Amino acid sequence: MPTSCTPAVERIARVLAGRQISQNGGGNEAHAADAVDAAWPDHIDDAYAILHTLREPDARMAQAGDVAVWRAMIGAVLERPVRA
């Protein structure tokens, strides 16, 4: 199974930053990579809030896979805080 080298929290924080900054996400900057690189740490708390919400899968998610594995995977992210 492919895995990312970038922590999930950072990936989520980068998406949140990009949505505010990039024209593609509703922001004003056409070339936002450097701004996102600088801003993603400001979104770490929001990323953790999203992951806390996802700790428990909904019914559709539970039907698609192993709930215990899902909880363990999200739990692993929440146990190891990422700080920029």
Score class of each variant (00 low, 15 high):
R19G: 09
M61H: 03
Y48A: 12
I12A: 15
M61A: 06
T6V: 08
R80Y: 08
E29C: 06
H52W: 10
R80N: 12
W70S: 00
A8G: 08
Y48Q: 12
V36H: 04
A30F: 04
P81H: 09
A35E: 03
V69D: 04
R14T: 08
H31T: 15
R80F: 08
A39C: 05
A38T: 07
V15E: 03
H43I: 02
I44Q: 08
I12V: 15
A13R: 09
R80V: 12
D66E: 10
M73S: 15
A59F: 13
L51Y: 05
R83E: 01
R55E: 07
D66Q: 13
G27Y: 12
N28R: 12
D58A: 13
D37Q: 07
I74P: 06
A47T: 11
E10W: 01
M73Y: 11
T6K: 01
A33R: 09
S22E: 10
H52N: 15
D46M: 10
G27R: 13
G18A: 02
R19W: 09
L16V: 14
G75V: 01
V69K: 03
V77M: 01
D34A: 08
S22G: 11
T6R: 03
D34L: 00
L51K: 04
E29S: 07
V15M: 02
L54T: 06
T6G: 00
G27Q: 12
A62H: 06
M73C: 13
G18K: 02
T3N: 14
E10G: 03
R80P: 05
A30R: 04
A59K: 13
T6N: 01
V15C: 01
T3F: 13
A32H: 03
D37V: 04
W40Y: 13
M1L: 11
V36Q: 04
G75W: 00
V15R: 02
I50E: 03
E29V: 14
E10I: 03
D42C: 13
V9S: 04
L54Y: 04
V82R: 00
T3C: 14
I74M: 11
Q20W: 14
G26W: 07
N28L: 08
L54D: 02
I44V: 15
T6Q: 03
G27D: 09
A35K: 00
R55D: 02
V15D: 01
S22N: 13
Y48V: 12
R60P: 02
D37A: 09
T53L: 11
R71A: 00
A32S: 14
R71C: 03
L78Y: 01
N24S: 13
V77K: 02
A76C: 08
Q23N: 11
M61T: 02
R14H: 09
G26Y: 08
L16W: 00
R60M: 09
V69S: 07
V67G: 00
R60E: 05
R14W: 05
Q23F: 10
A59R: 14
P57F: 06
A33Y: 08
V69G: 04
P81A: 06
D46K: 14
V77E: 03
I12W: 06
D58K: 12
E29L: 06
H31E: 15
